[in-house]
């Protein structure tokens, strides 16, 4: 029988390999770096799937800190397939940073148990939200990266478009889940309203082209603002806010 600690322990291994990928990139060993990235992505995927499987049909609702590195690594691999190795590997430091935040700052792998999480829509909602956040953060990073490289690049904006589309999908699944469980599509709490605020922020971004003077350079800063909003309002609460890390104790990752 697989232990409940399996997902978190495989996540530690994935994080270590992400770290090795970063080291290889810094030492200009690009092929080795890509190989490590692929391996780490696979191990992270195993961690994620096992984490969901172990508490199925209930949902691991606040596992974004552990999913984000997976999503960012996936985007890196897509960029590598599109022959944009330099851009992809420049993101590895961000993957390592988020992995470390999940390991050292997270309050726990599994959330407090709730019957409400027993819904396919809960799973779909959370998966779509995590993928959307990863895409929007990656897109913002790449947009700023291209500003500093003084290069015009459309790839970040493609990522943002798909990220926003996935975010809309998350919203629709969230509405269905909320309705089925609470008889109301709206959850009258602050989480819902700051998510709506972030959605409107990106809606505004997609209408900026209607106004003169919004070139790629200026839009990149708007995207950075969006990434910051996601980090501050969605990501930080899932690791219990900014706090001094506790002792790295695997028992923290058992269900409570």
């Amino acid at each position: 029988m697989i232990s409940l600690r399996f997902p978190i322990e495989t996540f530690y291994i994935a994080s270590l390999i992400y770290g090795i990928a970063l080291l290889c990139y810094l030492l200009k060993l690009k092929r080795l770096s890509v190989l490590c990235l692929v391996t780490a992505f696979t191990v992270n995927m195993i961690s994620e799937i096992s984490g969901r499987y172990l508490i199925w049909p209930y949902c691991n609702m606040f596992s974004e800190p552990f999913f984000l590195p997976l999503c960012l690594a996936g985007i890196c691999l897509i960029l590598i397939i599109l022959k944009r190795d330099e851009q992809a590997l420049s993101m590895v430091f961000m993957i390592v940073l988020f992995s470390c935040m999940a390991i050292f700052f997270s309050e726990g792998y599994y959330p407090p148990f709730t019957l409400m999480s027993k819904s396919i829509y809960a799973h779909l909602f959370h998966l779509f939200v995590f993928i959307a956040h990863g895409s929007l953060i990656a897109g913002a990073y790449l947009a700023i990266h291209s500003v500093f490289k003084k290069k015009r690049d459309d790839i970040p904006y493609q990522i943002i478009i798909w990220g926003f589309a996935v975010l809309c999908g998350a919203g629709l699944f969230g509405m269905v889940w909320s309705y089925m469980g609470r008889s109301d599509v709206i959850s009258w709490n602050h989480y819902y309203f700051h998510s709506i605020a972030i959605w409107f922020y990106y809606v505004g971004f997609f209408h900026l082209h209607l106004i003169r003077g919004w070139d790629q350079k200026r839009k990149a800063w708007i995207l950075l603002g969006g990434a910051f909003l996601i980090f501050w309002f969605d990501y930080l609460p899932q690791i219990g806010g900014l706090h001094i890390p506790g002792v790295l104790n695997a028992r923290l990752y058992e269900l409570y």
Binding site: F193, H194, A197, F200, G204
Partner: peptide, 9 residues
């Protein structure tokens, strides 16, 4: 609306 919802949250 973005500002309202953010402050409101």
């Amino acid at each position: 609306l973005f500002a309202e919802f953010l402050i409101g949250s």
